[in-house]
């Protein structure tokens, strides 16, 4: 399977995706901006910059059907050491940042990944460093086999996607054989202490629905995942984050092809929750693209909606105070973060 970009697909063009999102709202439904206006949250403003999410590149060893990054082996865009140095400068000096969230693609495939993690840990021993590890990368090549030890040495929290506790549902979304490899990788992480009680090494899983439906209650899903993964495979983990699929990129393509777009948008809009809107992750997060441009979140990044603060749109021009005063850019894909119990890179928000 190739990326939308390699296929020259229309949805690889963010302008095309935004046009669909703006112009094809289900009949009678108001825009996300109008919903925010109704509850007095427009323009949406940041509360603080606490989470510094860095996209290390779009290169990945997997081609997941729902991927909002359109990542895959054919994507070559990755962050350079020069841009990482700019990020390090900000991480070191912005004391409000308590978490650095490393994502991709598969962030570990960036040749500077280990250098970057070590430097962040040296610069800020006090903060959380998260890596969004797709699990299979640990088995993909012998050079990655020691990643669990590397994570442990640098006190990195591991956050990994596992859409379901069966091969059928996981492989249908992430590719043939991914479930089996993911279980093996989870066992290797458990073996060095990740997800095990008393070690302080966090291993959190991400659940997202394998289709055009919303995630259920996070705590109930977590109970079910814990029981099934332990009983069937002897796998331990700490928490489950339930994440809603955002209607952009490959998931948007799936929704349109399967004729589920309208009903899915309707579900998201009908489930709009004002409490979730108040707690959206973009209010305390800044997202850095592989080339150093700044965005309100990873989804805006994929839609190429740069932050609405002209003086500080690139990491090299970072101005924390100006960014804190910015208006957060929204569009109708944002309904994905405000539906039901809310959704963020850390799971439910309301």
């Amino acid at each position: 399977m190739k990326s939308l970009k390699a296929l020259n697909h229309t949805l690889s063009n963010p302008e095309e995706a935004l046009e669909i999102l703006e112009e094809q709202l289900p009949n009678g439904k108001k825009s996300f901006q109008a919903h925010l206006q109704t509850i007095g949250l427009f323009p949406l403003k940041p509360t603080q910059i606490e989470i510094f999410q860095v996209n290390l590149g779009k290169m990945c060893n997997q081609v997941c059907k729902h991927c909002h990054v359109d990542a895959g082996p054919d994507r070559k865009e990755i962050m350079t050491r020069e841009t990482m140095l700019e990020c390090l400068r900000v991480i070191t000096h912005e004391t409000s940042i308590h978490t650095v969230d490393l994502t991709g693609g598969a962030p570990e495939m960036n040749p500077e990944f280990r250098w970057f993690v070590t430097e962040i840990r040296n610069a800020r021993p006090d903060i959380s460093i998260l890596v969004r590890c797709n699990l299979t990368i640990i088995l993909a090549n012998p050079k990655y086999h020691d990643l669990p030890d590397f994570f442990k040495e640098n006190r990195v929290e591991v956050v990994s996607s596992l859409p379901y506790f069966t091969a059928l549902r996981t492989d249908s979304q992430r590719g043939d054989g991914v479930f089996e490899k993911s279980i093996e990788a989870l066992k290797r992480l458990n073996a060095v202490g990740y997800g095990m009680e008393g070690t302080g090494l966090s291993l959190n899983l991400v659940y997202n629905p394998s289709g055009a439906f919303l995630p259920g209650a996070q705590d109930e899903l977590e109970r079910e995942f814990k029981k099934k993964l332990l009983d069937k495979f002897g796998v331990h983990f700490n928490s489950l984050f339930a994440i809603t699929n955002i209607p952009i990129s490959r998931f948007l393509d799936y929704l349109i092809r399967s004729e589920n777009y309208e009903s899915y948008m309707e579900k998201l809009i009908d489930a709009f929750n004002p409490s979730a809107a108040a707690g959206v992750m973009c209010r305390n997060t800044i997202s850095i693209g592989w080339d150093g441009w700044l965005y309100d979140c990873d989804f805006n990044q994929m839609l190429e909606m740069k932050v609405d603060e002209k003086s500080s749109q690139h990491i090299s021009k970072w101005d924390g105070n100006a960014l804190l005063a910015r208006d957060i850019k929204v569009n109708n894909h944002c309904f994905g973060c405000t539906a039901g119990a809310g959704s963020s890179c850390g799971g439910a928000t309301a």
Partner: peptide, 12 residues
Amino acid sequence: TSDTLEKGCDEE
């Protein structure tokens, strides 16, 4: 069918 899927039930 939608509700059971949302609540994390599998096909089996």
